[in-house]
């Protein structure tokens, strides 16, 4: 297995985590989150702040999770009485505000120049064992997250989420607290995204505000919608597919002899065009949601 393939696979796993996290929000709870990338950023900045202030990686992951939960609670507070589309724009705005803060508070975050030199996870292992172990770790993380999401959504809790998505008034009348359901889902999703961010920071070894622009959120959206909203496997497949397509666009360019700016246009077309095509002609995605799938009834 070539090193490039290992790299693409690692990135695919991390995007898989982000995609699972977003899918939990939109696919199950009906939360239109356009600020997903900032939840990921909580993880990367947890790692980077812990590293630049010599607190050690354990503090890093704890910081990342704490940030993520705080942001999730703030998002949930906003969502308490907002319509889905208003909330979407509000999360986009909050993510941008947080990115601007991170970009400017040099003393804490390293500012626009970011923080480099964050240690690799298996940095002292010989090659290719290091990258392979990293891949194994990412796969394990993805599998755990998948199991967790499955467990969550096939329980009574998952049914409540779906009920809230489809018939919010009915769910409320049955005694479910909608705001509690929303904030719990957001917190679980935030922790998953922050975990991806933490591993990403220790894999790429660099954390900066440019990684937190809104277009990253839209990429994750495309993964979920193309894979299939409301289906965990779909979200993962979507992420893997998009990451591989993204990574292999340059090869297409090489093979066809296209100028390099077409790579940018092609990537945009892949995300935008792919997303649009699926929304119009196959809204359920590659792997549709399975209705009536529960363990405990």
């Amino acid at each position: 297995m070539s090193e490039f393939l290992i790299h693409v696979a690692i990135m695919a796993c991390l995007y898989g985590l982000l995609s699972l996290s977003l899918n939990l929000q939109i696919g199950f709870a009906g939360l239109v989150n356009f600020g997903q990338v900032i939840l990921f950023g909580c993880g990367t900045y947890g790692a980077s702040i812990a590293f630049s202030h010599q607190l050690g990686p354990v503090a890093g992951i704890l910081l990342g999770i704490t940030f993520a939960i705080l942001v999730a609670l703030a998002f949930a507070r906003l969502g308490r009485n907002l319509g889905a589309d208003y909330w979407g724009i509000a999360t986009l705005a909050m993510a941008e505000v947080l990115r601007i803060i991170v970009n400017n508070e040099d003393w804490l975050t390293g500012g626009a120049q970011g923080v480099g030199g964050i240690p690799l996870i298996f940095g002292d292992m010989p090659r290719p064992a290091g990258p392979l172990l990293t891949l194994a770790l990412c796969l394990a993380l993805l599998a755990c997250a998948w199991w967790l999401c499955n467990r969550l959504t096939t329980s009574r809790y998952g049914l409540a989420l779906k009920l809230m998505r489809e018939e919010p008034q009915l769910a409320a009348s049955l005694g479910y607290s909608l705001s509690a359901l929303k904030s719990q889902t957001l917190m679980v999703a935030a922790v998953l995204a922050a975990a991806a961010g933490f591993v990403f920071a220790h894999y790429v070894t660099f954390v900066g505000p440019d990684q937190l622009v809104a277009s990253e959120t839209f990429l994750i959206w495309a993964m979920v919608v193309i894979g299939g909203t409301g289906n965990h496997l779909g979200a993962i497949v979507g992420a893997i597919l998009m990451q591989f397509l993204f990574a292999y666009v340059p090869f297409v360019k090489d093979a066809l002899g296209l100028p390099s700016e077409y790579v940018a246009a092609m990537r945009l077309m892949l995300v935008g065009g792919g997303l649009l095509a699926f929304l119009m002609w196959r809204t359920q995605g590659l792997i549709p949601e399975r209705v009536g799938e529960t363990r405990h009834v």
């Binding site: 889905a84 589309d85 959206w221 945009l268 077309m269 995300v271 935008g272 997303l275 649009l276 929304l279």
Partner: peptide
């Protein structure tokens, strides 16, 4: 919500065409 995401996707297609 789907229509909004669709409009977002459409604006990415626009960006590609402009580029």
């Amino acid at each position: 919500a789907i229509a909004m995401i669709g409009s977002l996707a459409l604006s990415m297609v626009f960006s590609a065409i402009f580029l």
